[in-house]
């Protein structure tokens, strides 16, 4: 079965990573891989809605932030709760919040949805910023586990999430997602509840993004409104899957990796604050002009084309 391949590759990747961690002292790279993995998890969550349902969300930082703050707040209030438990609770909280907010948001499609999700991000961020009980702009420091534990934890979660999403989209529910996206009328006619289907993609996706947020709190040992609820977070969560290839697990995986790497490269090349957006924006434009579906499906198509041409020539 196809899934077996995924699990095996996942396990191999994890072992390789552990070996890498043990054998070398590349703290910077290990740190960077963990950072990328956070966005891979969040991006997979975004992709469930953005790719498989086709509704672009501009506010996934909300779920990311809820996950992070569920870890941060009890620490801020000096409650002694296991951090790992809080990470899982954060994912759950993000899911519950998505369930509630899906009621107004999923009633509209296209960019009212996009603007609505952006608005949601603004609302939640503003509330956090002005509420002293949520530590306002000060943020919360978290005394977290050692890096030797958090990094493999994050990588492990990232691999598990990718496999989970790959499994999910081939389940009955995942097929329903695609039906709702591609042929909504037909989907309704065969008895698929469109709202419920969209909502389940939204909620599951939000949980994954919330999980990424919780892990971010462990990773950085710090949460504050701009890092967790900022527009920037939303933007990079959505850019990965979009550039890599929406509606494709591998595409989103590659996309998140490429975008985060490019962002860091751009930051070191263009040192002016904000200047790195030039490269990110240009990449987005170029990818969209060359392949409307993103890098990964574009490459797959190209390879197929070349193969076909080659076979044709051989046939002649």
């Amino acid at each position: 079965m196809n899934l077996k391949k995924w699990v095996v590759s996942g396990v191999i990747a994890f072992i390789l990573y552990m070996l890498f961690l043990r054998l070398t002292d590349a703290g910077f790279i290990a740190n960077f891989i963990a950072y990328i993995s956070l966005f891979v998890i969040a991006g997979q969550g975004w992709n469930l809605l953005g790719g498989y349902i086709g509704e672009i969300s501009f506010g996934h930082a909300v779920f990311f932030g809820i996950g992070a703050y569920t870890v941060g707040l009890p620490v801020g209030y000096k409650l002694d709760i296991n951090l790992l438990l809080l990470v899982l609770l954060g994912a759950l909280m993000a899911g519950i919040f998505a369930l509630i907010i899906s009621y107004p948001l999923l009633r509209v499609q296209g960019f009212p949805f996009l603007v609505g999700t952006y608005g949601l991000g603004v609302v939640i961020r503003s509330i956090v910023v002005v509420t002293p009980a949520l530590f306002a702009t000060r943020g919360i420091f978290i005394s977290t586990y050692s890096k030797n534990f958090t990094y493999p934890l994050i990588i492990g979660f990232a691999i598990a999430v990718v496999i989970f999403v790959q499994w999910l989209v081939n389940q009955d529910l995942g097929l329903r997602f695609k039906a709702v996206r591609d042929v909504p009328t037909a989907a309704r006619m065969i008895g698929i509840n469109i709202y419920k289907t969209k909502a389940s993609a939204f909620v599951i996706g939000a949980m994954l993004t919330g999980l990424a947020g919780g892990l971010f709190a462990l990773y950085g040992g710090f949460v504050n409104p701009s890092a967790c609820f900022g527009d920037n977070t939303s933007i990079f969560i959505l850019l990965g899957p979009y550039i890599g290839g929406i509606g494709s697990v591998l595409g989103a995986l590659f996309g998140s990796t490429i975008v985060i790497i490019l962002q860091e490269v751009a930051r070191s090349v263009i040192t002016v604050n904000g200047g790195h957006y030039l490269m990110v924006g240009a990449l987005l434009v170029v990818v969209m002009m060359l392949s409307k579906e993103g890098i990964y499906p574009g490459i797959v198509k190209l390879v197929k084309k070349i193969k076909n041409a080659y076979q044709k020539r051989q046939g002649e």
């Binding site: 086709g54 604050n273 904000g274 200047g275 957006y277 030039l278 990110v280 924006g281 987005l284 434009v285």
Partner: peptide, 28 residues
């Protein structure tokens, strides 16, 4: 076929480039 999504992404990418250029020339 995703017309709006594609248009949003292209224009947004261009907008990002404009913003970055402003950052570079006039700073934040």
């Amino acid at each position: 076929q995703g017309r709006y999504q594609a248009q949003i992404m292209v224009t947004w990418g261009l907008g990002m480039c404009i913003m970055a250029i402003e950052f570079i020339i006039w700073s934040g």
